[in-house]
Simulated assay, not measured.
Amino acid sequence: MEEITEGVQSIAIAGDSHKKNRIQVSNTKKPLFFYVNLAKRYMAMHNEVELSALGMAIATVVTIAEILKNNGFAVEKKIMTSTIDMKDDTRGRPIQKAKIEILLGKTENFDELMAAAAEERELAPPEEES
């Protein structure tokens, strides 16, 4: 239930929550490759994905975008930076936080790369559980 609340709060912060291809990235909640794989799925469904982050998570978003670009999955379409006002939970006064939004689109060979990766997974021996 806690994850749902956090998800709703991040959508409220985002403002335009109607975007179905937006990923709000946090650098504490999930591992890096969770977001990389999620971004690939979003691009497969919507042809593009918007990665969004605040404050310290900005470095994580840039890393995710670079992994997708360097591996031939995505091209950069747009980068937007801004500053938003938030309430500081510890002091109760408003603070400003940096925000980044990176819009990535599928490359021409995205579908081929995804098919090759899926085929590789099928051929790989099953991992043993420890």
Rank of each mutant, 00 (worst) to 15 (best):
M56V: 11
S52T: 06
F34L: 07
A118K: 15
G92R: 05
E129P: 02
D85Q: 10
K106P: 00
E129L: 11
I102P: 01
T5P: 07
A14I: 13
E50I: 05
E122A: 15
Q96C: 09
N71L: 07
A118L: 15
I13A: 07
P126S: 15
D111R: 06
A65C: 06
A39E: 03
G15D: 01
D85L: 12
E48P: 03
S10I: 08
A12W: 04
I100R: 03
A57W: 00
E112L: 15
I13S: 02
R93L: 10
K69A: 05
E112P: 09
T63V: 14
A44Q: 14
E48K: 09
T63A: 12
T107C: 07
G7T: 14
E128R: 06
V75Q: 02
G55T: 02
T81K: 07
F34E: 07
E6Y: 14
D111K: 09
S10R: 13
K77P: 01
A74M: 04
L104F: 01
R91F: 05
A98F: 06
A65D: 00
E129S: 11
F33R: 08
G55E: 04
G15L: 02
A44E: 11
G15H: 03
A115V: 10
T107F: 04
K40A: 08
P31F: 04
E2N: 12
D88A: 09
D111Y: 09
A14P: 06
Q9I: 15
I13V: 14
M80Q: 14
I79W: 02
A14G: 15
M45W: 13
M1F: 15
E120V: 08
K30C: 11
D89G: 10
H46F: 12
T81L: 11
E101N: 09
V61Y: 01
M86F: 10
A65K: 04
E48G: 03
A74S: 05
E50T: 04
K77G: 04
S130Y: 12
E120S: 12
A116M: 12
R22I: 02
A98M: 10
K78T: 04
E119A: 14
A39S: 07
Q9M: 14
D88F: 10
K97S: 09
Q24R: 06
R121V: 07
I100N: 00
E119C: 11
T63F: 06
S26G: 08
H18C: 12
Y42G: 05
V61R: 01
P94I: 13
E108Q: 15
E112W: 11
K20V: 07
R121C: 10
Y42V: 13
E122H: 12
L51G: 01
V61F: 02
Q9F: 13
E101Q: 08
V61A: 00
K99P: 03
I4A: 14
A44Y: 09
S82N: 10
L68E: 03
V49A: 02
S26M: 07
M56Q: 13
H18N: 13
E119Q: 12
I84K: 04
I23Y: 01
T5A: 15
K20M: 11
A57F: 00
A14C: 14
V62D: 05
R41F: 13
A117P: 10
K106H: 03
T90Q: 12
L32A: 06
G72D: 09
K29E: 08
G105W: 03
V25I: 13
E76K: 10
